[in-house]
């Protein structure tokens, strides 16, 4: 042990941070590609969802590993929590408004299948 252990722990935390940030950025990129590739507004919202949940989540958790136990980490947690409450609200409103104004899904998808109890 001695005085080498803390140094190694810090290095490991750095590696974890890097992995999370790179993975998170990659998923944000994939979300963006998805928005371009998907055929209509509803499927595009699914692609955007990846950016908001997994992408932003991984990046924020990666930053938390660097900020240590303190005010900054709590604030990062709060950002994550607010993101997870506001993102579905916005997606839901976009989709509902699109449906209300008659935006047709592309390609024609089957509507209204079974509703089991």
């Amino acid at each position: 042990m001695g005085n080498r252990a803390p140094h190694q722990v810090a290095k490991m935390v750095d590696v974890i941070t890097w992995v999370m940030l790179v993975l998170g950025s990659g998923l944000v990129l994939v979300g963006g590609i998805g928005i371009l590739r998907m055929p209509d507004v509803y499927t595009r919202l699914h692609a955007g969802g990846i950016t908001d949940t997994l992408g932003a989540g991984l990046i924020l958790v990666g930053l938390m590993t660097q900020s240590g136990w303190g005010g900054a980490t709590i604030k990062l947690c709060l950002i994550l929590a607010f993101l997870f409450f506001t993102n579905p609200t916005a997606s839901h409103l976009l989709a509902r408004t699109a449906l209300k104004f008659g935006v047709k899904p592309q390609p024609e998808s089957k509507k209204g299948s079974s509703s089991k109890v």
């Binding site: 994939v30 969802g49 990846i50 079974s114």
Partner: peptide, 30 residues
């Protein structure tokens, strides 16, 4: 969170898949 990670990876793989294998549909959930 585990659920989001699993489904997110699945959707991400479908997005980068050359054929874009999606079958969008509307369903009613009780």
């Amino acid at each position: 969170s585990v659920q989001i990670a699993k489904c997110g990876l699945d959707v991400a793989l479908r997005i980068v898949h050359p054929k874009l294998p999606i079958e969008p549909s509307f369903i009613k959930i009780p």
